[in-house]
Write a protein that binds this DNA or RNA. Structure first.
Lengths: 204, 204
DNA sequence: ATATTTGTTAACCAAATGGTTAAACCATAA
DNA sequence: TTATGGTTTAACCATTTGGTTAACAAATAT
């Protein structure tokens, strides 16, 4: 009873199309017909493979979070010093986001729309935890490497500084009165500027 | 031909109801019927006063931005030093947001959905500009009050640190594994922690 | 070969949704 | 009092939308 397979990964093409549409327009703004068009197939296929809009969305969402989680884990669970972590994360994250520009906003938005999504995610394998990071910060503070700061606050600061500009891109472009090119330059500059900013603040 | 006025500000009640629904659910997720229910009136009234969903939304959106703009202007256009500005903004902003919890996310989200909204806003009276702030930063850097930093980058950092936690509340609550109460405490702490963090970084 | 399972499509359906209409309501001016 | 004009409502409408169905196509198993 081997898998009958006329299709060469229709299921994957659907997921890819759904990703594009959902991440651009969100759950409420997305249309099943548009996803079908994007995938170049009949609308009924979406239901054949994923049963409902909600389930298709869930698949896209879990997938998206699975991409982001390892990025967060880089800050939280490797063995380098806090300073190194900040530097690595800050420069890597911006490159990462360039490849997935809609990702952070998508996750944040849909989590706002329905906070219960977090439960689905928490079961996920590589779900990030703060424990190690908090301990490490407390430790480096005690040793006098860092000025006094709570791990939680530092963590929020790091992700705020790195993620926010990509979540609020149109706002920032508007306020700073810059175009696409200007924005890219600014973000390029931030790869070092942000980690400098953070290190300046916390290093003794 | 005085204005016949059986209604005591139905128009205002509609706007208030629309604000609640739109800010919670966004343009796509909001339903005209729900807005009518929230306002306790007939759905036709929405169209009587605002013609279409789009126009009603525009009214809510402009209104929302008119609330946020003065907050930004506090950082940009008063006469205090950069250090004072950072301190004031950081502590005031968090109090402000508590009164309008859905506001920042609403603006950012809808601006992402349709970046052309910015044009509508730019015509707005108190639209914030960065010129003065940039000059002031350059000036204080030259005088040796601040470490070298670009005004634009500092501005992005300030709003990132202040706004992001409120835009990504569910994400942060999930990652830090805290509840509503814990989140409020954390934000309360940030009123001083954030300005300290910034000042530590930039002050010579 | 042919029966059976899997993949795909066009046509269809019911519910939801933004918007309209025509009639009723009500305060005020005459 | 009554004519007038803004205000409000219930019923209605056309379109959109997520989802279903029944028939057809293509593999695979026997």
């Amino acid at each position: 009873m081997a898998k009958a397979n006329k299709n060469q990964d229709t299921e994957g093409e659907i997921l890819e199309a759904a990703k594009n549409v959902f991440q651009k327009k969100g759950m409420d703004g997305a249309r099943m017909q548009e996803i079908a068009n994007e995938a170049g197939i009949n609308k009924a296929m979406l239901h054949y493979y994923y049963r409902s809009k909600q389930l298709l969305f869930d698949a896209v969402f879990s997938n998206a979070f699975s991409l982001l989680a390892p990025e967060l884990n880089k800050v939280l669970n490797d063995d380098s010093s806090i300073e190194e972590k900040v530097k690595n994360f800050t420069s890597n994250y911006i490159s990462f986001i360039s490849k997935h520009p809609y990702l952070p906003n998508f996750i944040i938005q849909e989590l706002n729309r329905n906070p219960k999504f977090f439960e689905k995610i928490q079961k996920n394998a590589a779900f990030p935890t703060l424990e190690k990071f908090n301990n490490q910060v407390a430790n480096e503070v005690k040793k006098g490497i860092l000025k006094p700061i709570e791990g939680q606050q530092l963590f929020i600061n790091i992700i705020s500084l790195n993620i926010f500009p990509f979540v609020a891109t149109p706002l920032i472009k508007g306020l700073l009165d810059i175009d696409d090119k200007g924005f890219k330059q600014l973000m390029e500059h931030r790869k070092v500027a942000v980690s400098e900013f953070i290190i300046n603040s916390i290093k003794k």
